[in-house]
Design a protein around this nucleic acid. Structure first.
Lengths: 332, 332
DNA sequence: TGTCACCAGTGATACGTGTCACTATGGTTG
DNA sequence: CAACCATAGTGACACGTATCACTGGTGACA
């Protein structure tokens, strides 16, 4: 097992200097087409690939961006894909680091990443302390792509719960007077925003609320929430924090013999694939996670280039009316 | 904006040589406790962190492993987390690269990764051509955590479709005589293995088969498969390639007025969370993706250390009988 | 013909680290 | 006292690349 070929090997075989090889590969110097072609051919023939560590050391540019994510959340994959796409377009390689543990643990690991000198920018999709965002001398910028606390930097598109008002308004217009919210965890910005919007909205419209139930992003929490409703709850409109909670609501309703949408109407959030195929199909909010990921990475790239940040992407969210809300339609 | 401190800066301030700083940090030379303490304190005070690119260039060891993944597949996040955990335990940092495009594209990018000299090992969860696995001189090992073609290296736990025989046998024992398979894409090892096992099994048991339908991991494909069945198909047992296909089958059945499990019995695969909460709930195969990810990374780490690969993890898969198969139970 | 500009390519150097070979010092042993 | 050894630390160098400063050659133009 020999060592991988270097640019010097290419130079020696091609009969030119290592400098020439470097200029050919970076396309920077002035090199004649004939020489360029020849060098490229030699490089190809011996399977030469630049050593990126050496290149990075020399240029102080790694061409690499880091994306920080946490435990398994399906939607994050889509965001990551969107972000990776933009990064590639901008000439960067994006790598994903999955950090578990407490906020402090994650913050420490992000700091290690910034100081390691391997990344030109870092985008985090999970909460970190603001200490990780205040960049020291010579450290790469760290951008948080999710809102999580008032004290922390945020973008916030994904936590926007304004469409929940549209749900409730449309259902009220369709005659519904009694509501319940099956919420996600309140330490998630999105879960908290939806619960707060729900409470403000039922208050403002003066309709009855059976309270905020749930508290986890699980189907079982949705099921339990329905099982906990009083027997005379129907007809009631159940606003679920996301689609997996909603499918639990479906199950709970079936167990109690309640029909959807006659006894219960149900809304979800996220537009998970299965929601379009349940019976009844699930009214929900389509969230363009990929676009959100793209937008976040656009912000990071703009920051790296010192450009003006692109305008906030609009219409990341869109209501999809389906059978679980009966004939309730959006106001026209 | 000044440059980040180097080991020379630490040495200068501490009044020692750069060599001494290096020995302190790597713990290799013979350094007196007093000097060691002093150097560490200086390094801490000026916020020194080793430049990993330079270290990697010198040692030819990066301490980094790459995991290759594709588009959004929920289960991959779990596998990645399992793999990352094992990598960290073994003293490595695992980074995830998400590669889209054709198999050729992915293969090319994997080759770039191997040749870049930044990774000591690569684990891919998506199909690549065997060209990426045959490592050249000095390139890191590439391990495919999924079987996809006879010509390619494979692990294959996840592609194990033997439990599909249990499904069919149990359903035959319960009186079913007519079957259909709604398959996943055949360039996925798991999709192909399930289709092949299905065909072999109906052949062996001498039961009627309405064929292999589907071809994508989407709910719509499942729905279309049911819509394509002949009117006199029921009673029929539908073996779906995974849970999202199965939920499409549910929908298709509802649209045709077929009842589950009376007219159709349905099985899925993967034990997605929603499957336990649909009505009827979905019989499926629980797959321990996290354990699969751990096992795959164990294999890579063992290969890197030149150790014997660990024994194949057992019981990664387990059938979960639910309502969609009626009273069909496993043979005792 | 002399001068200037430009092209194609080269030599040398620096990036920050780890490690080999070496030195100075002090202590132990015969 | 001489010989030897372990300890603590240093100087020099190499890893592979990009880039600055430079050279020799060629053609254009006055």
């Amino acid at each position: 097992m020999s060592l991988p070929p270097t640019s010097r090997d290419v130079a020696r075989i091609a009969g030119v200097s290592q400098t020439t090889v470097s200029y050919v590969l970076t396309g920077k110097g002035s090199i004649s087409p004939a020489t360029r072609e020849h060098v490229l051919q030699v490089a190809e023939s011996i399977g030469y690939r630049p050593n990126l560590a050496a290149r990075s050391m020399r240029t102080r540019r790694s061409g690499r961006l880091a994306a920080i994510t946490g435990v398994a959340i399906d939607n994050q994959m889509r965001m990551l894909n969107g972000a990776a796409h933009v990064a590639n377009e901008a000439g960067y390689v994006m790598e994903t680091h999955s950090f578990d543990g407490t906020v402090e643990d994650r913050t420490e690991r992000v700091l290690e990443l910034t100081a390691g000198g391997q990344y030109e920018g870092i985008l985090t999709f999970v909460p970190v302390l603001s200490a990780a965002l205040s960049n020291g001398p010579g450290t790469p910028p760290v951008l948080a792509a999710t809102a999580f606390d008032d004290k922390m930097h945020s973008l916030g598109e994904l936590a926007d719960a304004s469409l929940l008002e549209v749900f409730i308004s449309a259902l009220v217009a369709a005659g519904h007077r009694r509501f319940a919210h099956v919420a996600g965890p309140q330490d998630y910005a999105s879960g908290r925003a939806r619960a707060e919007t729900y409470l403000a909205c039922v208050e403002r419209l003066g309709v009855e609320s059976l309270g905020v139930l749930g508290g986890e992003w699980t189907a079982e929490a949705g099921r339990q929430a329905v099982l906990a409703l009083p027997d005379d709850a129907p007809p009631v409109a159940v606003i679920a924090g996301n689609d997996i909670l909603a499918v639990g609501v479906f199950r709970g309703a079936a167990e109690r013999g309640w029909s959807i949408p006659d006894d219960l109407v149900v809304t979800g959030w996220d537009n998970a694939e299965f929601g379009a195929y349940t019976t009844p199909s699930l009214t929900t909010v389509d969230v363009d996670f990929e676009a959100a990921g793209r937008h976040a990475m656009h912000l990071l790239v703009a920051a790296l280039r010192g450009e003006e940040p692109p305008p906030r992407a609009s219409a990341l969210q869109r209501i999809v009316w389906r059978e679980s809300t009966g004939r309730a339609e959006p106001p026209r």
